[in-house]
Each structure stands twice: as C-alpha cells, then as structure tokens.
Write a protein that binds this DNA or RNA. Structure first.
Length: 882
RNA sequence: GGACGAUUAACUCAGUGGUUAGAGUGCUACCUUCACACGGUAGAAGUCCCCAGUUCGAGUCUGGGAUCGUCCACCA
C-alpha cells in the first residue's frame, strides 16, 4: 500500500519549482478545448520589462492566479495571458544610465545601435521577470506570452494610429506640453504628479514705458520674466483701470510689452497683476492665444536657458537663472520683496524630474469621442467595477477628459507611422512604410522620428495580445475578456483607455468585470519605494515562507477598497496556515490503513462525518458566492476557518477515537473518510495554496492526476445536515464549557476528573449527547461521565451551565466560595440583564408586529433558553453558598 | 475648490439592519499527550470617533461635525 510519507517539516523550496515545472510540462495552463462552458479570460497587467516585481505585483498576480485557477477548476476553458510592457521612458533611462557609466550618451551610439542595445537589456530583464512570475506560481499560459513591442503588437499599434488618423481623431500641433527635461520628451497630462514645494513668491516692479508709474507683479518663477510678452490685470479691477492699453518696459531685457485685461487674473492673489509668459505657463499660453501675444521660448530641451535670452543667461539652469535675475532686479531697483510660499510643482511620474511647460510640435489624440463610447459601455452595463465606487472615478475622468499627447521624443518605442515626402511635403500615415510618395512619386520619404507613448500600446493590450488586427481564433473565443484585476492607481492611465480602445476598435468593452484592488503599503501606511527602503520583495517572502504563504496571506487580507499595510512578519500568517495544512495531511498519511483505502461507496457515515460534510458544503457555497463577488478576503476566512477550526480542531480530533481503535475495520473506515475529506479540501484550497496542495495531493492514495484541472468541489444537497450541525454546535458548547472549568480550576490534564452532566430528558440533544459519551470523554480528557438529571445538588463540585444542561466537575481542593460566588453573580446579573432586554423587546407591540415572525420567534426561543440557564445558575449559587 | 474613502480590542483588520460585536498578532495561565510549540486548551482585553435622526431594532442606513488619508482641479 501507499507508504509515501510527507517530510516532517514543510519546506516549500523542496517542491515548488518541481511542481511548477510539472504544470508547465503538462501544458495545464493552456485553455481547455470547447466544452460548452463559457471561456474565462484574463490579461495580465504587463509589468515593466526593466522593472522588478514588487509586492504590488505580488498582490496583483496572487489575486489573478486565485481567480483563474478557481474558474479553470470549475471547468471553464481558461486563459491567462502573460506579457510585459516596454515602458518607454523607464527602460530608455535604464539603458542611458548604463551608458553614462561608460561616459557615453545615446547619441554616441546612434539610434539604431541604441535600440539594439535596449533590446538586449530587455532580454536580460525579461528573463528575471518571467522567473519571478513562475516563482510566485502564476498559472499563465506562457505559450501566449506577449511584449508590447513585439511584431504583432506593433502592427496593432500602427493600425490603430492610422485608423484614428483617418477618423480625424489624431492630429499634430504646436502646443504647450509637459516637458521632462531629463528625458527630453513630452509627457501626457496624466503623467505629471504635483508635489507641494516650499518656494517664494517674488514681488517685482514693472515700470510703465512712459515712466509715469509702475506695476507690481507677483511670481514664483522670476526667471520666466525673460519670456514675458504681456502683463495682465482683471478687466474689472478698478485699481488698474487706468493702465489699460499702456505698455510696460520689461526689466533686464528692456522689451516693451502691453498691459492686457483678462478675467483669468485672480484679483485676490498677490497684487492682482500677473506677468504673462505664453511659452512657459498653461494659463498664460491660453491668454496669449486670446490676445495674440508672441510666444517667447527661453528654454533648451534640457531645461537650461537658451533661446531669446541675454547671452549671460544662456546655459544656466532655471535655479541659477533665478538667482541671477533676482540679483539683477535688486541692483536695478525692480525687486520689491519675497515671501515664503508653498506651491505645487509638477514632476514626471517616471523620472521624477521637474516638468516644464514647453512649446513643441506633438501628436495628440482627440479623446472626447472615444470617452463617449467608453461612458456608454458603463451605462450599458458592459463593464462593472468591483468595488462599485470606482465608477465615480472613471466617469469623472471621462467627463473631464483632455486630449492626449502621444508623441515622445524617445528612441525606445513604436516609431510613429507617419512619413513625410521631402520633395513635396506630402504626409503619409500608413501601417507599413511606403516606398514612394503617393503624390509626387519621390522616394525621399522620412519617417517621423518620435515614438508613441507606452500607454498607446498598453491600451490595446486586451485584444492586441489575442492577435488583433487579425481575426484570430483566440480573439473570437476570448474577447471580450472576463475580468481585469488591477490597482486603483492606473485606472486613468490604463483601465479607462483600454475601455476606449475596445469600444472604438472592436465595438465592445475589453472586459466585463474590473476588480480594483489595494495598494500595498508598509506598516506606517507609506507607499513602498526604493528610496524609503521599505519595500518587501515578493521573492524574499517566497524564499522564506513559500509562494503559498505569500498568496494566501494576500488573499486573506484583500478586503475591498482598503490599502494593505504589511511588513515581512505579516506573511507568517499564511506560513502558519500552510504549515497546518501540511501537518494535518502528514498525520493522515501516517495513519493510512494497511488494507488500503475503502471505496467511497463502502463508507459508513457517523454524526461527525455527516457534520464535516455539511460544513464542507457550507464552505463551498461561501467560496462560490465570495469568488463571484470578488470578495477574496471572505474566501480566505472561509478556507482558514473550515480547515483549521472544523477539519483539524474537531473532525480530526473526533476521529482519533476510531483511528486508535484496535478493530481494523473501524480504523480503516475512519482513515478512509478522513482521506476523502482531505482530498476534497485540497482541491477546495488549491486556487489559494497551489503548490502545497498539489504536492500533498499527489502523494495521497487517491487523487486527481493534477489539481490545476481537477474538478472544483461542489456543494451536494444530500450532504446538508442542519440538524447534525445543531447537535454538534451544542456538543462543542458542552465541551468548551467543561474545558473552561478545567482551566479555571487548573485541573491538570493527566488527572482524571469526575464528571456529572445534568440534562433534561426532553433536551433536544439528550440522545445525541448520550450517544457521544466516548467522544466527550476524549475531548475533555476524562474517563468517566455520569449522566444525571438537571438541577441536582453535588457538593464539592463546580458547575458550568449551558443551554439545557449543566456539568459538574468535582475538585479536590476547596472551592473559593467567595470568588466563585462573585463570578457567578456576575454571570447571573449579565444574563438577567439580557433576559430583561429581550422582555422589553417582546413587550413592545411595535416589535412583535413590526419585525418578521421568525425574528420574533428566535427572540422568544433565546429568551426561554436564557431563562432556563438563569434558573440553573441560581440553583448553583444557592448550592455553592449552602 | 471638488470628489471619494477611513475611524471597531494594545496593533493590523473583518463585520451582509436582527444573539450578549469577531479574527490574526501581541499579552496572561496551563500543557512538550503519540500531526503540528509555526502547536493545544483556556483567559483578559471594546464609549464600534462625536452629535442628531430614520427604524420595532443601528457598528451597519440618513444628515451634521471632528480627525486622518487618497485622487482630481488649481492661485501666478
């Protein structure tokens, strides 16, 4: 017979890699063929290829894995598409930093070589990322892995660009955009993070050209004075009414600029006069357009001062220029004062560099028409957010959408599919490079040098990964996908835009359910980051506790809508549970019957068996409900409670009676039944403790070939046994009560205790209790139990009173009557109070007529029980004091 | 300025209008009894942020307030 024993200590490292390999070798993560059940598809939020997985990925992928494994076991053809994102700015910077160490820039290599090198770096990192996903057990279909820059996805990107262009939704224009001087590229509005910075508000004097007076303006950026082309006041501001139409002479540069009136000026702020720098401030840019002001650019692409400034300012950083201009203004008497001032400064979310508003020619996507379709998708219930409240965020963003700047002045990315004829200037927007100009036949065609925003490929992810624009079988079968699992910080960047792309190009939202999970933070609630050094590496957890501990802990903690605060020790929780599962299984393996396991049909069920099967039914139902509502923490609780409290603490304990039997057939029955319940529990837990359950399962004498595609347990109505559950609940109460007594009077376990249980003959558990005498004795560690009538008097015994019963335990030493009486009086008082409160409730006609009948009935029953308990308590008190 | 969330045991958090509000960790006592000391058995621990309201009944729903947090917009 099977003598496979489990090692004494759980060492996840011993089997995790082997098990993962086993799953892959057998192609278990690939979708099943058509079987009449609806497919379940998920695309992974592609991690940056040059990043490393952090705990956020740990959470994200643990939840997806749980979800995907659950539906796969439910028999749905399931697909989880893996892949990575080329992450334009981030990756290019990784490579540029590498070059910088050799004293080189990307320009030393040239575009072609630089891109080649970046592909190499990508390959190195990609291997790491894939390895990490395997380590945490992600059941992704590696045969379908994609990369945002691979050929198929690039084709999708070009196709989308061309279609948008043809629909008039892509345009090129010269605008003020957010400029990252460190990466020297434009970025989108969403990519700017505003941080509060302590600066100064400088008050400066601009003299009127005629010398008759001066205007005092306030600014946080005095150096931009060099690009001023007007000074503005509010049209209704009486203080400055007389200045309309006049001009001022710009200090330092001497340029004459008009005083304009515009209602964008806030009269309350500063002096009510504002300098207007159309080339370096979004508000001023708009004002400049309204008033036809020149746009005077003063910055180089790297953020230093350059064009249109006096020679001595050229090449200075804005910080240096600020110092110099303040100095010059002071010397020339134009400086009034400076006061401390907190204000928001934009930073690039990728590079962290301070963003400059900067004039340049860029490509944009007109977003309004796309947003309307995406809003309709929500209205029509094509997409559902879990938790629902994120709908607000989505709608709010969609309704206030601005055009999307999609061109990036980088080399790493999808080069914009636009070719300009050098001869005639004709523009070709094509999915493939044209050979000749379609206007003048010239072959001198130059492709636009810029690349597209990384998110311009990410937003196509749910269908580009399935083969679009080709009409592939995968696309037909798995689009739209079933669920998207992601954190709330990329709802705008990614989720919203994917819905836009899906509705625009496929006429259908790309997924049905959107589960928005938490961010993982440290115990102080801070975002995990490299600079703080507070991050937890998921692999470190895998190494120390195992992948199952990682996943189970995260699933258990994953309540909707809250951030998860975690430190490394938090994972001990999952580790302990995994250990418990391991040891329980090990114990059962050690007790396999020599004659072999019985067939299911040969099993004979007693009360404990019927109880655990009924409890198992309950657990299965809870899990089904919770999984369908994406309530992962409920699932975690259900699994934990069922396995630990029901299966281990009670069922295994109760079975020890039979397992220790000298009668082989009894032992064989017990061991077989335990094993079947364990086997089913392992399947139940597999989506959440994948490696461990697979490892154990394969060593059981009866088991599925693998758990990945094994059928998920289903609740079987014939197993429901509410009356047995009620009996058992009463039994547990009795046992706990006696154990408490034991503990209170520190009756050592080796000492046999003398026990009398008083029970009404009409007690609903009367027969059940008496039938379970042996079990009761074992579970409380006594050898003899006398059944008596309730309310008897037993001098020298302490008593615990339950619902419908009382237990007397004889203690050797004298009972501290005073102490015991006090405690008892307290309990009596509490119970009386309770009875009183229920009485009040029942005496209230509003309650008896207003509340549902079963609630009223339940209250009555509880009252009666409490009343009975009270009687017994009082009787005991009397006895104690006599 | 706008929106959203949170506030429950010492800590981290669950909690679906209906028992006397729960878990994990930590703490206390006892137990190395033959699966597990990453364990067992018990115990202590609560103004469910505050105020009003709705309801037969509120930790749960409504309104107001306080504190903390997040996002969006933004004052040069």
């Amino acid at each position: 017979m099977n003598t496979n024993e489990l090692p004494k200590v759980l060492e996840p490292k011993e089997f995790e890699d082997r098990i993962y390999q086993f799953w892959m070798d057998n192609h278990l993560f690939e979708p099943l063929p058509e079987n009449g059940k609806s497919p379940f598809a998920v695309v992974i939020p592609p991690p940056n290829v040059t990043g490393v997985l952090h705990m956020g990925h740990g959470l994200n992928n643990s939840l997806q894995d749980a979800l995907v494994r659950y539906w796969r076991m439910k028999g749905h053809p399931t697909l989880w598409v893996p892949g990575t994102d080329h992450a334009g700015i981030a990756t290019q910077q990784v490579v540029e930093r590498r070059l910088a160490k050799e004293g080189k820039t990307r320009h030393d290599l040239g575009r072609e070589n630089f891109v080649k090198l970046t592909w190499q770096v990508k390959e190195e990192h990609h291997a790491i990322i894939s390895q990490q996903l395997k380590k945490i057990g992600a059941s992704v279909d590696w045969s379908r892995e994609r990369f945002t820059l691979d050929e198929g996805l690039s084709k999708a990107v070009r196709e989308v660009f061309v279609r948008l262009y043809e629909r008039g939704l892509v345009y090129k224009g010269y605008y003020l955009v957010n400029w990252d001087p460190s990466a020297q590229t434009a970025i989108a509005d969403d990519e700017v993070e505003y941080k509060e910075v302590q600066g100064f508000l400088y008050h400066l004097r601009y003299p009127l050209s005629d010398g008759s007076a001066w205007l005092e303006i306030a600014t946080t950026r005095p150096e931009t004075l060099l690009g001023d082309s007007a000074v503005a006041v509010h049209p209704d501001d009486e203080r400055y009414a007389s200045f309309g139409g006049k001009t001022v002479r710009l200090p330092v540069v001497g340029r004459e600029i008009p005083v304009i009136a515009d209602s964008f000026v806030d009269r309350e702020f500063g002096t009510g006069v504002v300098k207007v720098t159309p080339a370096h401030d979004p508000n001023d840019f708009e004002a400049g357009l309204r008033h036809n002001l020149p746009q005077i650019n003063i910055l180089n692409p790297d953020g230093t001062l350059g064009p249109n400034v006096p020679e001595r300012y050229k090449g200075l950083t804005t910080v240096k220029a600020r110092e110099l201009i303040v100095q010059e203004l002071t010397e020339q008497g134009f400086f009034v004062a400076q006061e401390p001032h907190k204000h928001q400064v934009g930073h690039c979310y990728r590079s962290g560099a301070v963003v400059e508003p900067y004039l340049s020619e860029q490509w944009f996507v007109r977003m309004k028409p796309l947003a309307e379709k995406a809003l309709a998708a929500l209205r029509e219930d094509q997409i559902r957010f879990y938790p629902k409240r994120w709908e607000h965020t989505y709608v709010n963003w969609m309704e206030n959408i601005r055009d999307w700047c999609i061109s990036r002045q980088l080399w790493w990315g999808h080069q914009i599919p636009v070719w300009t004829c050098e001869s005639c200037g004709h523009l070709h927007v094509k999915t493939e490079a044209p050979r000749n100009c379609e206007k003048c036949s010239s072959d001198r065609l130059i492709q636009d040098e810029d690349v597209l925003d990384t998110w311009f490929s990410s937003w196509l992810w749910p269908f580009s990964t399935l083969g679009w624009p080709e009409q592939t079988p995968d696309l037909a079968r798995f689009y739209p996908t079933s669920a998207l699992v992601t954190a709330y910080d990329i709802i705008f960047f990614w989720v919203a835009r994917m819905v836009m792309a899906g509705t625009e190009f496929l006429g259908q939202a790309p997924f049905r359910d959107i589960y928005i999970h938490q961010l993982v933070r440290d115990k102080q609630g801070r975002k995990m980051s490299k600079s703080l050094g507070n991050g937890i590496d998921p692999l470190e957890i895998v190494n120390e506790f195992g992948a199952d501990a990682l996943k189970f802990t995260l699933v258990y903690l994953s309540a909707q809508g809250q951030d998860i605060l975690l430190d490394k020790d938090g994972f001990k929780f999952g580790s302990k549970f995994a250990n418990k599962v391991w040891n329980a299984s090990r114990y059962l393996m050690m007790n396999l019957p020599e004659e072999g396991i019985l067939e299911r049909s040969q099993l004979e069920y007693g009360p404990a068996d019927r109880w655990i099967l009924s409890r198992l039914n309950g657990a299965i139902r809870s899990i089904d409900t919770a999984m369908q509502a994406y309530k992962f923490n409920d699932v975690g609780h259900t699994i934990y409670d069922f396995f630990w409290y029901d299966f281990c603490d009670w069922y295994i304990e109760a079975s020890k009676l039979d397992l220790a039997s000298t009668e082989p057939s009894i032992k064989r029955q017990a061991a077989s039944k335990l094993l079947y319940v364990l086997e089913e529990s392992l399947r139940l837990m597999h989506p959440f403790l994948s490696f461990l359950t697979e490892e154990i399962s394969q060593k059981l004498p009866v088991h599925a070939p693998n758990l990945v595609q094994a059928p998920y347990p289903e609740a079987l109505p014939e197993r429901d046994a509410p009356e047995v559950e009620a009996h058992f609940a009463a039994l547990q109460e009795l046992i706990r009560g006696i154990r408490t007594l034991r503990s209170e009077f520190t009756l050592p376990p080796e000492k046999n205790i003398r026990l009398i249980v008083g029970l009404d003959s009409d007690h609903p558990e009367h027969d059940f209790f008496r039938a379970q005498e042996k079990l009761i004795l074992m579970l409380i560690g006594a050898q003899e139990l006398t059944w008596g009538a309730s309310g008897s008097v037993h001098p020298g015994a302490v008593t615990v009173v339950g619902r419908g019963w009382e237990a007397y335990v004889f203690v050797k030493d004298l009972v501290d009557v005073v102490k015991e009486s006090e405690k008892l009086s307290k309990t009596i008082e509490k119970t009386m109070k309770y009875v009183q409160s229920v009485d009040n409730k029942l005496a209230n006609p509003a309650f008896t007529s207003g509340a549902p009948a079963e609630v009223v009935e339940a209250e009555r029953t509880k009252r009666e029980e409490a009343e009975k308990t009270l009687k017994r308590l009082k009787a005991y008190l009397v006895q104690l004091q006599s």
